[in-house]
């Protein structure tokens, strides 16, 4: 009687532990499949032309130069605009308003924005920028990416500032430093690695963003660095090319996909290595 009970419990135990090993294998296998297919198809399509020629009409040779430059330009504008805003907002949450009702509310809304559908961000910018300007533009694309950058930076900045021991703040304040100097010279400096991590995560997040760009920056078949005009971006070009029936466009889409993924994975791995361990 007892021995069958033991045997049954051992059996269940073994069964479920095996299932959880299989769950981990399930996740890792998909990651392997996706990266494998991406490298296989992407590397076959990568050539030096990719970086110097423009996106071609179907049936012709070409590259992705305008899309690469467009993606870099819009991401840079978004990071340059979003980082300071996110940094200040995160600083308010961690340093000034830590326990206030306003901070609680901002934190709540920020976390919703962090996971809100990015396509809705695109609609928002379409309404307030594209409709007002009367045309699609890289400014609008960058603005929609900024809206995605801000919550990421706010969240990581706040988390990282909260990790800074209060003793440091008190020591600086005891020397007579005004609070703003304490924050800038001591807390920010102590949390620098973490804040940089947040910015890297934000860059990684926006470099693959497609949905908000579709109806803000639109796309552009030609070379353009004018932020007032529609601009090509890697994700938008991949979307257009992959959905098309043309073989050579598909190849370019794979090459673009590989470029984006390589960038994003490198950034997120660097960010993870830099990330300070949580201490609890």
């Amino acid at each position: 009687m007892n021995s069958t009970l033991y045997a049954r419990r051992k059996l269940w135990n073994g069964l479920f532990l095996m299932l959880s090993v299989m769950a981990a294998a399930f996740g890792l296998i998909w990651l392997g499949f996706i990266l494998g297919a991406l490298f296989y198809n992407g590397f076959a399509a990568i050539s030096s032309k990719l970086f110097v020629q423009m996106t071609p009409p179907p049936g012709e040779d070409g590259g992705l130069a305008n899309a690469i430059v467009g993606s870099i330009m819009m991401s840079m504008i978004a990071v340059l605009a979003g980082t300071p805003l996110g940094l200040f907002a995160g600083t308010y949450l961690a340093e000034y308003g830590r326990y206030t009702r306003l901070a609680f509310f901002v934190r709540f809304v920020n976390d919703i924005l962090l996971s809100a559908p990015s396509i809705v961000t695109g609609l928002f910018i379409y309404e307030i920028v594209v409709v007002k300007m009367g045309h699609f533009s890289a400014w609008a694309g960058a603005a929609s990416l900024t809206v995605i950058v801000i919550p990421v930076v706010v969240r990581t900045t706040e988390n990282m500032l909260l990790l800074v021991p209060n003793g440091l703040r008190e020591a600086a304040a005891a020397l007579g430093a005004p609070q703003s100097s304490v924050i800038r010279a001591v807390t920010w400096r102590a949390a620098r690695a973490g804040i940089v991590t947040g910015v890297l995560f934000a860059i990684a997040r926006i470099s693959g963003e497609t949905a908000p760009l579709l109806f803000t920056a639109l796309n552009n078949q030609f070379w353009s660095t004018d932020p007032n005009a529609p601009m090509a971006s890697l994700p938008a070009v991949i979307f257009q090319f992959a959905m098309s029936p043309y073989e050579d466009w598909h190849r370019l889409a794979w090459a673009g996909a590989l470029l984006i993924t390589a960038t994003v994975l490198t950034l997120s791995i660097i960010a993870r290595v830099l990330q300070p361990k949580r201490s609890h």
Binding site: G208, A257, L265
Partner: peptide
């Protein structure tokens, strides 16, 4: 990293 891979990559794959 599965979360870091951009969604368009999942799409094309």
């Amino acid at each position: 990293l599965l979360a870091a891979v951009p969604s368009i990559i999942y799409g094309i794959w």
